[in-house]
Amino acid sequence: MQKKLGSFSIKYWSDDDKPREKLVQKGKAILSDAELVAILIGSGSRDESAVELSKRILASVNNNLNELGKLSIKQLTQFKGIGEAKAVSIAAALELGRRRIGEDSKKITKITSSKNCYDLLQPILGELPHEEFWILYLNNANTVLRKNQLSKGGITGTLVDVRLVLKQALEYGAVALILAHNHPSGTLRASEADKKITQKLKAAAAALDIKVLDHLIITQKDYFSFADEGFM
């Protein structure tokens, strides 16, 4: 029985269709996500080309590169044709992409909006599978003096030590704070616990003439701002 054309090894394809040659001749922007992943893994298996294998991997995460970046080496090697070396190549490339986004956030030193806060912290918090609580410490000009992880928790919660937050604020000479934590579930809704800790920190900080300007809930693609929603 004749093999399907799509099952042939990439080496038998025309140069116009080979991902590497296509990138060199026409530029990286023209390649599909599957073709870019195919370049990373180099080869497929006896039953499918590298592009077909890449399409199958991407389909498993609904063609979402952010979700692909969350797959572990063990999960990637569950796909036939993906050994540890190929899995590491995929993971490394996606981590570089995540860090590239983080480079832009490093340029943000002054906070002028909730969007600034999100852009600064999303590369840190957006893709985590667990909750973390972070504090931005600001001076009079709303310039970021420090950004610190306060605590790290489970899937549904994390602890907040009010005394530690204020101790660090005094050490850094901060006059304002912005609170932030992530919701791995993607839910952009403030819980009662979120509201209570915000008010508790706001009241404690006020006694030291320190303002709590906002509290952000961060997800992979969006955020919720207490200040923007009138909860401060």
Rank of each mutant, 00 (worst) to 15 (best):
G153D: 06
A207G: 15
L5G: 07
M1L: 13
N116Y: 08
A193D: 06
E67G: 07
Y12M: 10
G69I: 06
I155Y: 14
S114Q: 03
L150E: 15
N64M: 05
N139F: 05
P184D: 06
F231V: 02
K28S: 11
G81K: 07
I135W: 07
E171D: 11
T158P: 02
L125A: 05
N63E: 13
F224E: 09
A204D: 01
W13L: 11
V175H: 06
L128I: 03
R146L: 06
L138Q: 08
H215G: 06
R163H: 13
F133H: 13
S105K: 07
A141C: 10
V175G: 12
I124L: 15
D33Q: 15
I39W: 09
I10N: 04
L96K: 13
L213S: 08
D161Y: 12
L136Q: 04
Q2Y: 13
N66S: 12
E132W: 00
S14L: 14
E127I: 08
A87W: 09
I101V: 14
L177K: 01
H183T: 11
L36E: 09
A50R: 09
S9H: 14
T219C: 11
L53I: 00
Y118W: 12
A205G: 03
L53Q: 05
W13H: 04
G6H: 09
Y223K: 06
R100Q: 13
F79D: 03
I82F: 03
D33P: 02
P129E: 03
I101D: 10
A34H: 03
D161H: 10
D228M: 07
G126D: 00
A93H: 09
M1R: 09
S113A: 06
I101C: 08
S114I: 05
S89R: 15
L5K: 10
G69R: 04
D194T: 00
V61C: 09
T187Q: 12
V165K: 00
E131M: 13
L145N: 01
S49I: 04
A87G: 13
L68N: 06
A169V: 01
F8Y: 14
I111K: 05
L170T: 07
M1N: 10
D119R: 12
K26A: 05
L71Y: 02
D209R: 14
K26P: 00
I155S: 10
K106M: 04
K107P: 01
K211C: 04
P129K: 05
E67M: 13
A169H: 02
S89V: 00
D15A: 13
K221N: 15
E229T: 06
S45A: 09
V144D: 07
I210K: 02
L71E: 02
G44Q: 05
T187G: 08
N63W: 05
K11M: 13
S60E: 04
D209W: 01
Q220V: 08
K107L: 15
D161I: 06
T198H: 10
E171C: 01
K211D: 14
R99N: 14
K152I: 13
E67V: 01
A29T: 11
A34P: 00
A207R: 14
V165T: 10
Y172Q: 05
A50L: 12
Q122L: 00
L166E: 03
I30T: 12
Q220E: 15
H215S: 15
T77R: 11
A227D: 08
A85Q: 12
E67Q: 11
K18C: 09
L188V: 10
V160F: 00
R20K: 06
K86T: 02
V37W: 01
F133M: 03
K106G: 01
V51I: 15
